[in-house]
């Protein structure tokens, strides 16, 4: 397991590593809640219905399918909503007010590749932080995904990383490698190998190709601008531009800011993309100066928002 080297001494390193373990524990709870064979959420709702079924994510509680149906005219006309379709509204509402917490704390499919990615040395990985407009690709993908009913097609199941994770679980549990179709092989290569093992942070699939994450961040990008919502809050006055947050962010949502954007305690500071931040707060745990934290309140305003401040910084 590769350790991400941080500045600020052993305490900062240990705190960040312990926090990561807490996050992984939370994702494991997410696995038990949403994935077969446990799928406790589905069991709970099935139990209410008197069926006491063995849980299975797909068809019943697959958020991808919920997203895929948002623009389906037939579904709105029928108003016949499954648990998964209703759940996507809950997830969206949470993202609007509290941030994309499903991604940041419960989605085992995203956490799995983040974990596996740490087995590969960073020097073999692509780092997209600050180099690629991930939000543009991500929202483009989301728009395409939502438009699929109009093209007479869909990728709800054939390109599902949730399902592939279930297959991996079934394979480990039974000792039998499940048969994958070409589409699942593509997903495995993109989600687990290219986006997981060989992309820094291990969440390449989440960053570019997950419609569930995309729709949450779309809500978050709106909600975070409201002063009463929760989000990762940046305090530039505490920031010394050590770069720890940039290093540990699994979504590569933090990048060094341009000179003059912030009035910091040293260096240019950082910028957080609301289009990819999943509020996992790993950056906060790695910051030795208290410059980042999850909480309610307004976003910090960049110094560059006012012309005199920008000019002062340049001079």
């Amino acid at each position: 397991m590769n350790r991400i080297p941080l500045k600020g001494g052993k305490d900062v390193q240990n705190h960040s590593d312990r926090f990561r373990l807490v996050r992984y524990a939370s994702y494991f709870i997410g696995f038990l809640l949403f994935y077969s064979p446990a799928a406790l959420v589905l069991r709970f709702f099935s139990g209410l219905d008197g069926k006491h079924l063995i849980g299975n994510l797909c068809d019943s509680l697959n958020l991808r399918m919920g997203v895929g149906g948002l623009l389906s005219i037939d579904r709105w006309q029928a108003m016949d909503w499954t648990l998964g379709q209703v759940s996507i509204f809950v997830v969206m509402a949470v993202a609007l007010i509290l941030g994309p917490l499903f991604c940041g704390w419960l989605c085992a499919a995203g956490a799995f590749t983040e974990f596996v990615g740490r087995l590969v040395p960073d020097r073999w990985k692509i780092d997209v932080a600050g180099k690629v407009d991930a939000g543009a690709v991500r929202y483009g993908f989301l728009a395409g995904y939502l438009s699929l009913p109009f093209f007479g097609t869909g990728i709800g199941c054939s390109f599902c990383n949730f399902r592939v994770l279930e297959y991996i679980g079934l394979g480990v549990g039974s000792g039998f490698l499940p048969a994958l179709t070409s589409t699942y092989i593509v997903v495995t290569l993109l989600w687990l190998v290219a986006g997981g093992m060989f992309m820094k942070g291990g969440r390449g699939w989440c960053v570019f190709l997950c419609p569930v994450g995309g729709i949450q961040n779309a809500m978050h990008a709106i909600g975070a601008r409201l002063p009463f919502t929760a989000k990762m809050r940046y305090r530039p006055e505490n920031c010394r531009s050590c770069g720890n947050c940039v290093e540990v962010c699994p979504m590569r949502a933090i990048a060094p800011a341009a000179d003059g954007d912030w009035q910091t305690s040293g260096g240019p500071g950082v910028r957080i993309s609301l289009n990819t931040c999943i509020a996992c707060a790993q950056c906060s745990a790695a910051c030795p100066h208290g410059a980042l934290g999850y909480g309610f309140g307004p976003l910090a305003k960049p110094a560059s928002a006012t012309l005199p401040a920008r000019e002062a910084a340049r001079s």
Partner: peptide, 20 residues
């Protein structure tokens, strides 16, 4: 970037439908 992102699921949908 938006156009590339948009094209990906559309292309994947058609590929998936052919393969499934």
């Amino acid at each position: 970037a938006v156009a590339i992102g948009f094209a990906l699921p559309v292309a994947a949908g058609h590929y998936g439908r052919g393969m499934s």
